[in-house]
Design a protein around this nucleic acid. Structure first.
Lengths: 252, 252
DNA sequence: CGGATTGTTGATAAAGTTCAAACACGGTGG
DNA sequence: CCACCGTGTTTGAACTTTATCAACAATCCG
């Protein structure tokens, strides 16, 4: 089903009935080319976008023309669910790769809120998960050095893609340029290039041909101080990537 | 009323009836000293905290002992509303000053969700506002230099406090140490000190005795690339602080 | 008053940016 | 098939920003 990946692998998931309700509220499915802008900052929106395949980026622009990516969405993500309550977005939404998206009209969401409060709560949860990721991005940019920032992003993306079946646990497609990575991690593409080489030289991970290959998952997580707690994974998933204990011991 | 400041000055506000419902769902009011930790990362929570007076900070810790502040809450903020759907928090919550907080049990929120969908939507909006601020913090840390980061934080805080009547539009109490400001803006307290002196020397703003005094609001906003759109203010408020047009013109 | 926290300053080192140039590589058109 | 173009990657050198370390001054508080 088109909504199979929504909240997949998370501590809160959808029941089959809820999935059916959500699926039924999809009005249409569309495809866009890479770099297509789906929603522009400031526009009033009447539908929310569920990402089915491909990658979508959300970015904040400033008058200088510089952009900061504030999130990368993977299949199963409700990209601009927040548009439902906010009505107008504070950032752009654009396709990083060719994408397939499902559109859910906001009045269908209103119906869900009135008639299916438990499902509404889960959608709320999904939007809070988004905020939790934002918080980690704040942490990443505020506290980590360039190499750890990139490492953290790769760890996060690895887990998120794994949760929806798009990573084998250490290797995944990530068709982003070094410039994109710079916009994600708050650094220039030149520096991204140098840091990637360093990560490769240390045997931690290789990024080539739009594929990220993590050679030593625990070591990369350690460098990145990556603990997947904020992703609210379900128990088996959390167990697979848990580093919490190791990190806690380290803290003492 | 205790909930008078909730969503005050925003594009979405509460009706008197909704305020009454929310107020009635408060179970108790508590006071804490500065530096008291209200919720620790990972704890399962059963109540959400509405800030009545004082300032609260939310911060992410890492095993090295460094902390990154991910938000500063002002009176009227529903500090950990997200705890309702997430159940466990991905960060600490602590008092930056002596505070007075109201506790709303999560089952009361569930009742609101079932019986008052319109109010539930507004609470959802409040949590999305939080996410919108996170996004700007990501932008701030990723794209701005130290002086602009501090300036941006002061601009944001000025507007937020003004919206709830705690700034006169350019001057407000902000009892944070330079170390705290460093944790907010991702820099060392030494560097905060130097940047504050520079801002003072340029005649932009002065921070002394726990009071921020912005001497030239538009100039500080320009340095910070501050546009309050992401705060979803109501029309008069937005108009008062709007810099959008000026910035848009600048962009061309 | 004494002790603890916060703020200030200087010297030095590290991290990251900028600018510029070269290189790789997959099209695409002749 | 080759020449050419555009996009993305790689490298070097000079420069800017920020961190680190260390000392000292100011302030607050009991």
């Amino acid at each position: 089903m088109r909504v199979d990946r929504v909240l997949k692998g998370r501590s809160t998931t959808l029941t089959p009935a809820e999935r059916a309700v959500l699926d039924a509220s999809i009005r249409e499915v569309r495809r866009y080319d890479a770099r297509h802008i789906l929603v522009e900052q400031g526009t009033t929106v009447h539908c929310s976008t569920l990402l089915i395949s491909g990658l979508i980026g959300r970015h904040v622009n400033d008058p200088n023309g510089t952009q900061q990516m504030v999130s990368v969405q993977v299949p199963g993500d409700f990209v601009d669910l927040h548009g439902y309550a906010l009505r107008t977005l504070d950032h752009d939404v654009s396709a990083l790769t060719p994408v397939e998206v499902a559109l859910v009209p906001h009045d269908a969401l209103w119906t869900i809120q009135c008639e299916h409060p438990a499902l509404a709560r889960k959608l709320w949860f999904a939007s809070l998960l988004d905020a939790a990721m934002h918080r980690k991005w704040v942490y990443r940019l505020g506290q980590l050095k360039a190499n750890a920032r990139l490492a953290h992003f790769f760890c996060e993306t690895n887990v998120r893609l794994f949760a929806v079946g798009l990573s084998d646990g250490s290797r995944f497609a990530l068709p982003l340029t070094q410039f994109d990575l710079g916009e994600i991690c708050g650094m220039t593409s030149v520096h991204v290039n140098r840091v990637l080489r360093a990560l490769r030289d240390e045997g931690l991970c290789t990024v080539r041909n739009a594929v990220v290959d993590i050679h030593d998952v625990p070591a990369l997580a350690r460098l990145a101080m990556f603990d997947p707690g904020y992703l609210y994974l379900d128990a088996p998933m959390a167990h697979r990537f848990a580093l919490a204990d190791a990190l806690a011991r380290l803290a003492r």
